[in-house]
């Protein structure tokens, strides 16, 4: 059994593009009595941009640290580029780039010194792989003499990405790269990821922001150490069978309370300027909700049916 496994996973190049870059089979991680992740299985194809979506404490970081060979799984198997994370961690470390959730570069070294250090310990130079990081690095190059600790959040993130890419990894693993970053930088960052993906790099990225799910090729929704669903964002939405209503009025706070107090309401969440409502009876029409809300004296009321977005699906999956 073991030998066949090994043969199956000993290929590090993917000529036909069908190979799996990341394979996770029934991985469980237990800290004493606490289960951090429970029986997680999924795979990421070569060149795919795969998202792990989930709230804080879902087990995303634990899973990534297992893949990065920093943590041993209690049970189960995991392979990166066909290499076993338990046994072939030395080879894996050459193939992957990792950007931890917390800024982990040397704050007392300059931008350039950090990049140079990580290039040299991987046995390469900045010049050799400059092409790969050029787009990102040019934005921080004017500050290359500045200490990393003195950079702004967005620039730190770009430096961290540059350092994770400097040895030209096949697989890039990013742990909540956009947490604590402003909206513009977040958008820029995802554009950068898309460009890296075009260069053939497999990307595994985790995020607590559900609106970023739509930017991935495929996503896995994680909660409490388990994967709730894995699919492409459009298919996840397609599979959602519930009827969804949106409502708004002048007093949003009272509106959401009133909707939640209605006996036909299943869930009600604020999404931007609207309240998204699912009802216990999926055939219920918008006018019924409107009638109820009018009886509660809401003004400038708008109620209509909408097609669900991926966030609605996740909210539903996480509460059911």
């Amino acid at each position: 059994m073991k030998t066949t496994n090994k043969q199956e996973h000993s290929v590090t190049s993917y000529p036909d593009g069908k190979q799996e870059a990341i394979t996770v089979q029934h991985v469980t991680k237990r800290y004493n009595d606490v289960l951090a992740i429970t029986d997680v299985s999924f795979s990421v194809g070569k060149g795919e941009l795969f998202g792990l979506i989930g709230p804080d404490g879902a087990g995303k970081t634990t899973l990534m640290r297992i893949l990065m060979t920093l943590l041993l799984p209690t049970e189960g198997e995991a392979y990166l580029a066909g290499l076993d994370v338990r046994k072939e961690y030395k080879k894996i470390r050459h193939l992957v780039g990792y950007m931890p959730g917390r800024f982990s570069l040397y704050q007392d070294l300059s931008v350039e010194e950090n990049l140079e250090f990580f290039a040299t310990v991987f046995g390469t130079t900045i010049q050799e792989n400059y092409d790969l990081i050029r787009d990102i690095y040019v934005q921080i190059e004017p500050f290359k003499k500045r200490l990393a600790g003195k950079l702004s959040g967005g620039m730190k993130q770009k430096l961290a990405l540059s350092c994770a890419l400097i040895h030209k990894p096949e697989i890039l693993v990013l742990d909540e790269p956009t947490t604590g970053v402003d909206a513009v930088s977040r958008k820029e960052f995802w554009d950068m990821l898309k460009r890296l993906q075009k260069q053939g790099i497999t990307i595994l990225v985790s995020t607590p922001y559900m609106d970023e799910a739509g930017l991935c090729d495929r996503v896995a929704l994680m909660q409490k150490g388990q994967i709730m669903t894995i699919d492409t964002p459009p298919r996840i939405v397609e599979n959602y069978q519930r009827n969804l209503l949106a409502a708004r009025s002048t007093d949003m706070h009272r509106l959401i309370n009133d909707i939640r107090n209605w006996d036909k309401t299943d869930t009600a969440y604020a999404f931007g300027q609207f309240v998204h409502v699912t009802t216990s009876d999926d055939n219920l029409e918008a006018v019924e909700l409107e009638r109820y809300l009018l009886s509660q004296n809401h003004t400038q009321l708008q109620v209509f049916e909408i097609s669900p977005g991926i966030e609605d699906v996740f909210m539903d999956l996480m509460t059911s």
Binding site: L70, V121, F122, G123
Partner: peptide, 13 residues
């Protein structure tokens, strides 16, 4: 403490 070891540990050092 600073977490820099995390980045260092994924290098082939």
């Amino acid at each position: 403490e600073l977490g820099t070891i995390e980045q260092l540990n994924v290098t082939p050092i």
